[in-house]
Design a protein around this nucleic acid. Structure first.
Lengths: 326, 326
DNA sequence: TTGAAAGCGCTAACAG
DNA sequence: CTGTTAGCGCTTTCAA
């Protein structure tokens, strides 16, 4: 910056003003500085700027997800990044690869960078992490599930209820040989519990379940489904924990010549594009994964702009959309 | 930090050392400082640190992709983030939403943050952007395509050759009524050119093409395919620019009762998990999207650690994998 | 081994 | 409208 000042023959403060509050400068000096900036290819150091300016805001928000390689999270991240970008914030990405122990280290690193806000996936942070976050005093939003006492803010839906609704949907359509294909992971387990509860409430005590160790490979869907089917001949409906898995099961049914939904009903989760591209069209539980990112971003933004906004807990809900596969 | 110093009864320098070079402190003082840090919940400000320390490295690398919501890029980003994390770097994410004009603004912002490195998607940056990047003097790696004179480093494969190979594969297997479904986007266009060239080389002059405006919705695959098929009754093989699209086409064929590949051959791109989950199993052009991220990360890391490493251009190639759908 | 002091690149009063 | 002077929170000589 001092190079620019010298080149333009003005003081440091003037250069700073030319960049941050150009309206407070004479046209003459402004032009001088701009020319010098141009000539030197000067790019202001934002870090130094935020260090010096009051509050030291970094204009960076960090997000932690299991992996962005999973569509469900990548769409949340996409929406979040877009929302933040509109507010002038940038996104620092952290991935745990489903190792929940990694979360604390990531948070620590982000806090060290003085991120202005944080979005977390899930609601099962350790007590020490919760405490650390509260002490940090920055807005935090947990996502993808619900709970009573969030660290700060929360946007998600009830995975347990999703499971229950899935069971009820399947039973209402006359299927009682129920199966569940999911992941060995928090939210999937919650859905399985809900699924079992929903089934039990209608007198279906036995539910087949296959939990895949993340990262879930869609190609596992077929084999896992095959296992369940041979273990339990009366199986006639499966709830897959994402539409990709469901598509895999549908393909497996095609291969076996099993009619969907007559011989086997298949219910997905997410309402991914493939649900509408599959044949038959997939019935699915729609969850607003994009909305999660958008809302999380908005909540952060309004908090960061000083608004003491309204709801700190938003339940986005979900919807069972019935198409042709159930 | 001064709070910690006071609390521990030592100087600022000692606190700094306790954090960055604990081996150079007496066990006594070290314990003192650590206790104070613990008691106060102190988190060192990394920004201030990098400002003060020579070189001012931020330990942040930025990546710009069209969108992380597209599997192909999300896997690259996933791999990149993981690789960088292992080297102690974090990832700042920028999305253009396919608006290539947004790229320059993002770069500007990242440069302002003094990121230590940058990874770009594609090779079609404007001259002014190229110049800016070169002047910035940080390692830059372009990805997802090939070119002769990259800004700095490059890791990708030839999209043109992918297209050509796809055409040759299809023709070799006896299909001559060729179609192409892709996106209105740089790399997809390159593949179409290659596809046409490959077809022409074997005397197939007429190639049907459908280019979808991004973001590509998989549910468009069926309708687009239907259009092509009705426009050109002799169509008997389509090359889809990603496996999702290909799965969509396969579903459409199921629906029409068209046997794949007998009535219609379907070739995908990417070798996504769904290619092995589909029925019939999808033939596809495998491109190493994870590798792109990993290699880009490694190249950056080795450059950042001072190694004057070897190849600055790496061609990852691709492979046509023949399964059951062609 | 530890501390004092001088910055890193920039912003923010405060004068002028 | 513009320049001077302190810092922001930390690291790093240089002495002690």
């Amino acid at each position: 910056m001092s190079d620019v000042a010298r080149e333009a023959g003005v003081s440091l403060a003037t250069v700073s003003r030319a960049i941050n509050e150009p309206e407070k400068l004479s046209a003459e000096k402004l032009a001088l500085v701009r020319a010098a900036v141009e000539r030197l290819g000067y790019v202001p150091n934002l870090n130094a700027g935020s260090l010096a300016s009051a509050g030291g805001k970094s204009r960076i928000v960090a997000a932690i997800v299991p992996t962005v390689a999973n569509v469900v999270f990548s769409e949340t991240v996409d929406a979040l990044a877009q929302t933040l970008a509109r507010g002038g914030y940038q996104l620092l990405l952290g991935q745990t690869s489903y190792r929940s122990g990694d979360e604390e280290g990531l948070v620590e690193a982000f806090l060290g960078r003085r991120v202005d806000g944080l979005v977390l996936t899930g609601t099962t942070q350790s007590a020490s992490l919760r405490a650390k976050l509260k002490r940090a005093g920055i807005p935090v939003v947990q996502t993808w599930d619900l709970m009573d006492k969030p660290i700060d803010m929360l946007v998600g839906f009830s995975n347990f209820e999703v499971g229950r609704a899935a069971a009820e949907h399947l039973i209402a359509r006359g299927h009682r040989g129920l199966g569940f294909i999911g992941a060995q992971e928090e939210r999937s387990r919650q859905r399985l519990e809900g699924f079992r509860a929903g089934a039990a409430a209608h007198g279906v005590a036995d539910v087949q379940a296959e939990l895949i160790l993340p990262p879930v490979d869609i190609a596992d869907a077929g084999p896992r489904f095959a296992q369940m089917a041979s273990r339990c001949p009366e199986l006639n409906a499966v709830f897959c924990n994402n539409d990709m898995l469901a598509a895999g099961v549908v393909f497996e049914c095609h291969q076996r010549g099993w009619a969907v939904p007559q011989r086997m009903a298949v219910l997905g989760l997410g309402d991914l594009p493939i649900a509408r591209a599959a044949f038959p069209r997939l019935s699915t539980v729609e969850v607003r994964r994009g909305q999660i990112g958008t809302r999380a971003g908005q909540m952060l933004l309004s908090r960061l702009s000083g608004e003491r906004s309204g709801a700190d807990i938003v339940d986005l809900g979900f919807e069972v959309v019935t198409r042709a596969s159930t």
